[in-house]
């Protein structure tokens, strides 16, 4: 403890940089960032054009919806919970959006409706979990079935989205510099990450999320509003799933009940790979972002390679997941 006070005044900036060692809590995040950089670097060396910044930007564009899902999942996992419903909620959201637009609702109203319904579903799951002690796994499993069912109920067929404004958002490129561009979905996703990072780090809600994940009964004894926050994280996750659905529709402009099957697994995998401890309390939302990028870079790798088939993606994700799960286990074992 005295080391911190000794560094004042006399030590130069260079000394600080030279002797800097990251706190252990950043280690998983740093490992993931290094992993991403390494994979991206390896790809650049191995394949032509892999190192082109547009490849990275496309990675963001293609996975914008997943980034938002992973952000929501981060909130839930940080409290020690899990949300299996997000993939289905994405499908339901695309369906609601497509159907309402088809019925001639105005775009803003349709969007608000989607976000409200998704948030409401999340809130209900949160209430079941907190007030009736139903395990998060099973409560969100019900949510999974419900959202998928609602999607099917709206229509079994795929509904195209033909709203002009929406299409403009979907396809209008935002030029960053020279020929490099992104789409609006990336902007939304990055804003979501930024807002989530601020909320988690600098608000009572966010710190309570960490406190619950660290030790729920302690958080209760500390007088924190555990109930509100526990319900709140599922509402946040629901909202993010709805938003993710909207972004998904930007990439694939249609409503379809078969969209995003198993996407909850990708979101959970991204969070785990991003260094967020599934037992709760540890990890950063930036980790979830990097986790998504790692998943994306695997995909890009396989596309660029050409000889590798698409199913290697899943196997590679599985292996990565295994590695991180084992590392997490070793970390928690050391601490206890």
């Amino acid at each position: 403890m005295s080391a911190a006070t000794a560094t004042l005044g006399t030590t130069s900036l260079w000394d600080k940089v030279r002797t800097y060692s990251p706190p252990p809590r950043f280690l998983p995040l740093i490992v993931t960032i290094a992993l991403f950089a390494g994979m991206f670097g390896a790809g650049s060396v191995r394949y032509e054009n892999f190192g082109d910044p547009q490849v990275f930007l496309s990675l963001m564009i293609n996975n914008a919806h997943l980034i938002v899902l992973a952000v929501g999942m981060t909130f839930v996992i940080l409290t020690g919970g899990i949300d299996l419903s997000v993939g289905s909620v994405v499908a339901m959201s695309t369906m609601i959006l497509a159907k309402t637009l088809e019925k001639g609702w105005s775009l803003p109203v349709a969007i608000v409706t989607v976000l409200l319904i998704a948030t409401l579903l999340g809130t209900v799951m949160g209430l079941l979990i907190h007030y009736f002690d139903i395990q998060p796994f099973i409560a969100t499993l019900a949510g999974l079935f419900l959202a998928r069912g609602v999607a099917y109920l709206i229509s079994i067929e795929s509904i195209p989205i033909a709203n002009e404004t929406f299409m403009k958002w979907a396809y209008e490129p935002i030029t960053l510099w020279s020929t490099y561009w992104i789409r609006w979905s990336v902007v939304v996703a990055l804003i979501a990450v930024a807002v989530a990072a601020y909320v988690l780090a600098f608000t009572r809600f966010g710190r309570t999320v960490y406190a619950i994940g660290g030790n729920e009964s302690s958080a209760m004894l500390m007088g924190l509003r555990v109930g509100v926050v526990k319900v709140g994280v599922y509402a946040v996750s629901g909202f993010c799933a709805g938003l993710g659905g909207l972004l998904f529709a930007l990439n694939t402009p249609s409503g379809n009940s078969l969209h995003a099957v198993g996407m909850e697994l990708d979101a959970i995998a991204a969070a785990v790979i991003g260094g967020i401890l599934l037992t709760g309390g540890r990890g950063y939302v930036v980790g979830a972002l990097v986790g998504v990028l790692v998943l994306g870079v695997i995909q890009t790798f396989i596309i660029f390679d050409g000889t590798l088939t698409s199913w290697w993606t899943r196997i590679a994700i599985g292996v990565l997941l295994l590695v991180f799960v084992v590392i997490q286990r070793l970390m928690t074992r050391r601490q206890t």
């Binding site: 960490y210 660290g214 030790n215 500390m222 007088g223 309390g281």
Partner: peptide, 15 residues
């Protein structure tokens, strides 16, 4: 009955 994954200051003052 504190939370290990928050800072000392947060543990003292959270709430």
């Amino acid at each position: 009955n504190l939370v290990p994954n928050l800072t000392v200051a947060e543990n003292m003052l959270l709430g």
